[in-house]
Amino acid sequence: MQEYAEEKFEDEFLTVGEVAKILKVDPTTVRRWIRQGSLEAVPLPLKDGGVRRRHRIRRSALNSLLLDQEK
């Protein structure tokens, strides 16, 4: 049961703002990491031909970024 809970937690999606709050950085920094490919994110579909692209970040991708920073 514990293992299932951990897997579910790892698959949780976070917003750019949530990641910024966790890391105590500006959301612009998180978006830059996504553009540079340092942080893997899933782009959400655009609504009505909108220009702004929104992303969601898997908690596992955030954990990978943090582990890479520790090395």
Rank of each mutant, 00 (worst) to 15 (best):
M1C: 05
M1E: 08
M1L: 05
E3A: 14
E3R: 07
E3V: 13
A5E: 07
E6T: 12
E6P: 02
E6L: 09
E6M: 03
E7T: 06
K8R: 07
K8L: 09
K8M: 08
E10R: 13
D11V: 01
E12V: 04
E12A: 04
E12L: 10
E12Q: 08
F13W: 12
F13A: 00
L14G: 00
L14V: 01
L14I: 02
L14D: 01
L14R: 00
T15H: 00
V16H: 01
V16A: 00
G17R: 04
G17I: 01
E18A: 10
E18W: 02
E18Q: 14
E18S: 07
V19P: 02
A20H: 03
A20D: 05
A20Y: 04
A20K: 01
K21E: 11
K21T: 13
K21A: 12
I22T: 08
I22L: 09
I22C: 01
I22F: 07
L23M: 14
L23P: 02
L23K: 08
K24I: 04
K24D: 13
V25D: 08
V25Y: 12
V25T: 14
D26W: 02
D26N: 06
D26E: 09
P27H: 00
P27G: 05
T28D: 07
T28Q: 11
T29K: 13
R31P: 00
R32N: 12
R32C: 07
W33N: 01
W33C: 02
W33V: 07
W33A: 03
I34R: 01
G37A: 00
G37C: 03
G37Y: 01
G37R: 03
S38H: 15
S38T: 10
S38E: 15
L39R: 06
E40A: 14
E40K: 14
E40R: 14
E40T: 14
A41Y: 06
A41D: 05
V42H: 11
V42E: 10
P43H: 12
P43L: 13
P43K: 15
P43M: 13
L44P: 01
L44M: 15
P45T: 07
P45N: 07
P45L: 09
P45C: 01
L46A: 13
L46N: 07
L46Q: 14
L46W: 06
L46K: 15
L46V: 14
K47V: 15
D48M: 10
G49K: 08
V51I: 12
R52L: 11
R52I: 08
R52C: 05
R53V: 15
R53I: 13
H55F: 15
R56H: 05
R56L: 14
I57S: 03
I57Y: 04
R58H: 10
S60E: 11
S60P: 07
L62H: 05
S64F: 06
S64C: 04
S64G: 12
S64I: 05
L65Y: 15
L65D: 04
L65V: 04
L66E: 13
L66R: 10
L66P: 05
L66G: 06
L66Y: 05
L67D: 14
L67Q: 13
D68R: 15
Q69M: 11
Q69E: 10
E70M: 15
E70F: 12
K71H: 10
K71C: 06
